[in-house]
Computed example of a mutant assay.
Amino acid sequence: MLLLILLLPLAARAADLKVATWNLDWLTTRQAGDRALPRDVTPRSADDFDRLARYARALNADVVAIEEVDGWSVASRLFPRDRYSIHMTHDHVVQRVGIAVRRSLHYDVNPDVTGLGFGHLRSGADITLHLGAADLRVLAVHLKKGCRDRWAVAGSLACRELRDQAQLLADWIAARRQEGAAFLILGDFNRIMDGNDAVLASLRQAAPLVRATEGRSSPCWGNESFIDHILAGGAAAAWMRPETLRVLRYRETDPAWKDRLSDHCPVSVRLAVPDGNGDPHEG
């Protein structure tokens, strides 16, 4: 036993990092009739924001990719600044992408991946987390809607645009592989990636990837296929613990709540990040 105690400090420990993605479905404080909102968008009430904030506390993730959020001030109503730092893309759209990071973690902001946001689409939010002995590149995305389970169907603008986005993501992945970086891509891919999916296959040509949602279905609003995904590459592929995949379901089960909460639930997974100093990060 004494020998084991002496050897323990020499062994690298793993810090538990909980990462999540959450599409918040046109989360904004704009009022009905605002020209920036579609007519079928239901503005949130103060009670709706309070409920979502409680779900954010229950999620209790270290890093959360957020989609369809109308800026920093709106995001901070769910992820208060005393507990989270929030980085948002610089897009001039209502449906912005961002990343909420627990205050105990440190990160650098990389330039937005603006190529994803051509036309009316959304850029990617890109940061580098500094986790003791390891760095982790994190890219949050919200890809083109309308091509869930098809690939470049003739005449389908949505699929052509998604294919262009997939090529740009593959280039981003190839650059991370060349750097030898650990990385995550997470968010709303608007794509079912089960089976021999062409989008996932194109990304895996750039580097080996582990998908947390592989072989699983989402219980969010019923037994449905995932379109929100968490992909890990480089060293992070070995850090990901797919058995920890969780979907935080809403207690409100009537479909009418989709407009007041979200039509997406938070999806999370845990990473075992090596820490050469043996200092656990707050999780």
Rank of each mutant, 00 (worst) to 15 (best):
H142D: 13
V93N: 04
R103Y: 08
L162R: 13
Q167Y: 11
S156A: 01
L116K: 04
F79M: 04
G124H: 02
A125K: 08
R176L: 03
R103H: 10
D91Q: 01
R81K: 04
Y84E: 03
L169W: 01
F79C: 03
Q178A: 15
L162C: 01
W151Y: 15
H106R: 15
V93C: 04
A182Y: 09
E161R: 14
T128Q: 06
D82P: 03
T89I: 12
G115C: 03
L139F: 05
L184K: 01
N110T: 00
G180N: 01
A174F: 04
A170H: 09
S156G: 00
A158Q: 13
H87P: 01
G146Q: 01
D126K: 09
L143I: 08
I127Q: 00
R137T: 10
A100D: 06
L143S: 06
L131E: 00
G98F: 05
R122L: 00
D149P: 03
A134H: 13
R81Q: 10
L139E: 06
D149N: 14
D112V: 09
Q95D: 13
R160C: 06
S104F: 09
L105R: 06
G146K: 02
F183D: 05
Y84N: 06
R176V: 07
L168M: 07
G155H: 02
H142K: 04
R122Y: 01
G117E: 00
H106M: 13
H120K: 15
Q178Y: 06
S104E: 07
D135S: 14
G115R: 12
G155S: 01
M88L: 14
I127V: 11
K144C: 14
V153M: 11
S85H: 12
D82H: 11
Q178D: 13
I173G: 03
P111S: 00
A170D: 08
G98I: 13
R177D: 10
L105P: 04
P111C: 08
H106V: 15
Q167V: 12
L131R: 08
I173E: 00
R81F: 05
T128C: 07
V141E: 07
D164A: 12
H92G: 02
I86T: 05
E179F: 05
H90V: 08
R96C: 02
Q167R: 04
G115Y: 00
G117V: 02
L139W: 08
D171L: 15
I99H: 06
G180F: 09
L105C: 02
R96K: 14
F183R: 07
S85G: 05
A133G: 13
S123G: 08
R148L: 15
A140L: 03
